[in-house]
């Protein structure tokens, strides 16, 4: 059975249309006008225990709204969310015991107190057994390098230090599911690497299910096995990360500078496994799947029709793929 089951989830916000000026304000009080906006539109997915899922999409695509519904902070307009047998927005406190969450820069650490005090509070609130708490604290301190931070006041920590402590706090009670909303935003590369390694380690050891939303696709590349891509409130891809690259990407774009072209390459190579995107008198732009062909194959093919002077090869990364998807340049097969 899946640990998270989401079925036909819809969230519609009522947005009040305010008018300007005092007159408009009074009008609004008497006759409030609302506009409906669908943030999440009929989303369904199942997540199995121990999965590392990257939940990605542009700003305003509906990521945060989905996460808030999964954690029970928002009530769905329709559809259902079941997390480990619980409906989060009905049994919020019970659900809270089995989850952990990081929301960007918002912290659960007490600003004026040493970090360790907040950890101790978490231990009490989640009823973490002494042994388990010690074991986790020791392990987390090691991986996240918290040794010198624990006795410092939170307000004296840097952004990266704070986030490392926050991550540790989130995993302290061995949550079954962890939601990480932009955990690496604004951090430097070393801290990012550190946090990614931590998430992978804990997932491997404790089979913690992790749902990660991020703008930094390196997070996804390095941490996640599965991608759910949401756009304008609907899921447009759900599956393995590698497969995602196969379908949308893992493609290479090769640009050639040529001369003495004899025939139209586009027409001559129609049967072949690659695609000519652009052709002029002395240039060619070709896209091909890296799994099936190599640059040598392409060179072989086109050199029959022209003389190659120069070439430039570039790989399509996750980021470029997503950019193209958002721009509508790639439409799923």
């Amino acid at each position: 059975m899946a640990i998270i089951e989401v079925k036909n989830l819809v969230k519609t916000y009522k947005i009040s249309e305010k008018q300007n000026g005092i007159l408009g304000y009074i009008k609004h009080l008497l006759h409030p006008k609302y506009r409906e906006q669908t943030a999440v539109n009929n989303v369904s997915f199942n997540i199995e225990e121990g999965e590392l899922v990257g939940y990605i999409g542009e700003n305003g695509a509906g990521k945060s709204t989905t996460i808030k519904m999964l954690t029970g902070l928002l009530t769905p307009t329709s559809g259902s969310v079941v997390v480990n047998g619980l409906v989060p927005n009905e049994k919020r406190i019970q659900n809270n015991k089995q989850i952990g969450a990081v929301f960007g820069q918002k912290t659960q650490l007490w600003w004026d107190l040493p970090v360790i005090e907040s950890f101790r509070l978490i231990k009490k609130m989640y009823d973490i057994p002494e042994g388990e708490y010690r074991k986790n604290l020791k392990k987390f301190t090691e991986i996240l390098q918290l040794e010198e931070l624990l006795d410092k006041q939170v307000k004296n920590l840097s952004l990266g230090q704070k986030m490392r402590c926050e991550i540790a706090a989130t995993f302290l009670h061995n949550p079954k599911i962890v939601y990480l909303d932009e955990p690496t935003i604004g951090l430097d590369i070393l801290v990012k690497d550190n946090i990614r390694k931590f998430i992978k380690d804990i997932n491997k050891e404790k089979k913690t299910t992790v749902i990660l939303t991020t703008h930094d696709l390196k997070d996804i590349e390095e941490v996640c096995d599965r991608i759910i891509l949401i756009d304008k409130g609907s899921i447009i891809y759900d599956g393995e990360k590698e497969k995602f690259k196969d379908i949308y990407g893992n493609k290479i774009i090769a640009e050639f500078v040529v001369k003495n072209k004899t025939k139209s390459v586009t027409l001559e190579t129609q049967e072949e496994d690659f695609e000519v995107i652009e052709e002029t008198e002395n240039s060619l732009k070709i896209r091909f799947n890296h799994d099936k062909l190599t640059v040598i194959n392409i060179v072989d093919s086109i050199s029959k029709y022209c003389e190659i002077l120069d070439m430039h090869v570039q790989e399509q990364g996750l980021e470029e793929i997503l950019k193209e998807i958002y721009r509508g340049e790639i439409i799923r097969d």
């Binding site: 902070l73 919020r92 809270n96 929301f103 918002k106 912290t107 609130m125 009670h173």
Partner: peptide, 14 residues
């Protein structure tokens, strides 16, 4: 006001 409440609502106590 600053959204901290989201974290506080996710505490395992009310």
């Amino acid at each position: 006001r600053n959204g901290q409440i989201h974290k506080e609502l996710l505490n395992p106590i009310s």
